[in-house]
Design a protein around this nucleic acid. Structure first.
Length: 303
DNA sequence: TCCCAGGTAGATC
DNA sequence: GATCTACATGGG
C-alpha cells in the first residue's frame, strides 16, 4: 500500500483485500451515496469524502495526505492484514470459502460510536434504504453543512451534545416511528455522558453488551452491531434474520435458535467472529440464501 | 390487500 | 424461562 499526493487529490496504490462497493453496500454503514460505479460520497468522522476505486487504486478527491493517513486509513481498516483473517477462517472449515472468495474486498469500517448506536437502533424492523433515509433526515436537520458534490449538499451526523437537543416528537417527525422513544433515550444518555466510548475501554465483550442493553430499544442484535462496528469488538457476532437463515442453511440444516447459533459462532470463530459474520451476511444476502426465492430456485433446479 | 423489513419491550403462559 | 405480539413506515 502506497500513499501519494496528486494535486488536490491523494491516492492509495497497491490495495489488497479491499473493494469499496462491497465494503459500503453490505449494511454496516448508512451514509454513503453512489455517484457511479465504484465512486461514492461518504459522510463520516464529521467529514465529507468523495472517493473512487480504480482496480487497486483509491482516489480521495480534494483530500490531504494528512487526512488520508490520520482518518481514512483507519476508517476503512486498511492498516489491518485481512489475508491473515481469511486464512484463519478458512482453516476452521470450508463453509466460508465461497463467501470469502465472492466478497474478498469487504472490510469492517471503524465508525463513530454514537452514530453507529443511533443508526442501528433505527435499523430494527427496517430495510437498509429506509434506515439511510432516517439517518439522512437527522443529519440534515441537526448536523453541520459539510459541502456539496454535483450540487448535492451533505451534512454531518450530529455529535452527542447536539443529539441531546432532539425531542422524542422531533424523532417521530423524522419518520423513525416506534423507535422515537428509543432514540430519545439513547441520545439523552450520550449527551449526558452516562454512556460514552471511554466506558468500554475496560469492559470485555459481555460487559460491554450489557451496558449497551441498558439503553431502551437496544437488545442483543443492536448491541452486537454497536460493539462490532462502533467499538472495535471484532469478536462480536450480530445475529439478524439473514445470519440466522444463512447459518441454518450452511451449518445446521434445520431451524436453530439464536442462542445456539451464538454459542456455536463464539466457539467456532472466536476472536474473528465479526469478520465471519460480515462475509456471511454480504454473501448470503446477495444470494438470498434461505429465503423463499432461494428455496424456490433450489426446487426448480431439481426438476 | 397482505406481507415483510439487519428487533425489542412488555405481556402472558 | 420460552413464546406471542404490537410497534410506524414504506415497498414489493
Amino acid at each position: 500500500m502506497k500513499i501519494t499526493e496528486n494535486g488536490k487529490n491523494t491516492l492509495i496504490n497497491e490495495l489488497k483485500d479491499f473493494d469499496l462497493e462491497q465494503t459500503l453496500e453490505c449494511g454496516q454503514c448508512f451514509r454513503f451515496y453512489k455517484l457511479d460505479k465504484e465512486e461514492y460520497v461518504i459522510v463520516a468522522k464529521n467529514k465529507m469524502l468523495h472517493i473512487k476505486q480504480d482496480e487497486n487504486q483509491l482516489i480521495f478527491y480534494n483530500t490531504s495526505k494528512e487526512d488520508v493517513e490520520n482518518i481514512w486509513i483507519n476508517y476503512f481498516d486498511l492498516d489491518r492484514d485481512y489475508n491473515e483473517i481469511k486464512e484463519y477462517l478458512l482453516k476452521k472449515d470450508n463453509k466460508l470459502e465461497s463467501a470469502i472468495k465472492e466478497k474478498y474486498g469487504v472490510r469492517i469500517l471503524n465508525q463513530d460510536f454514537h452514530e453507529v448506536l443511533i443508526s442501528f437502533i433505527i435499523s430494527q424492523n427496517k430495510q437498509i434504504p429506509q434506515i439511510k433515509q432516517v439517518v439522512k433526515r437527522i443529519s440534515e436537520q441537526y448536523g453541520e453543512y459539510l459541502g456539496d458534490v454535483n450540487g448535492e449538499k451533505y451534512y454531518s451526523f450530529p455529535n452527542p451534545e447536539k443529539l441531546g437537543e432532539i425531542t422524542e416528537e422531533a424523532f417521530r417527525e423524522m419518520k423513525s416511528g416506534f423507535r422515537a422513544p428509543y432514540l430519545y433515550d439513547a441520545s439523552q444518555k450520550l449527551a449526558s455522558g452516562e454512556i460514552n466510548e471511554e466506558l468500554f475501554a475496560n469492559l470485555n465483550e459481555e460487559d460491554g453488551r450489557e451496558l449497551l442493553k441498558s439503553i431502551k430499544g437496544v437488545g442483543d442484535k443492536v448491541a452486537n452491531c454497536v460493539l462490532l462496528f462502533g467499538l472495535g469488538y471484532r469478536n462480536a457476532f450480530p445475529i439478524d434474520v439473514w445470519i440466522k437463515r444463512i447459518m441454518e442453511a450452511i451449518y445446521f440444516g434445520k431451524e436453530t435458535s439464536k442462542e445456539e447459533i451464538q454459542k456455536f459462532a463464539s466457539n467456532h470463530y472466536g476472536e474473528y467472529g465479526g469478520y465471519a459474520q460480515q462475509y456471511l451476511f454480504c454473501f448470503g444476502r446477495d444470494a438470498k440464501i434461505g429465503t423463499k426465492t432461494d428455496k424456490k430456485k433450489k426446487s426448480d433446479n431439481k426438476k
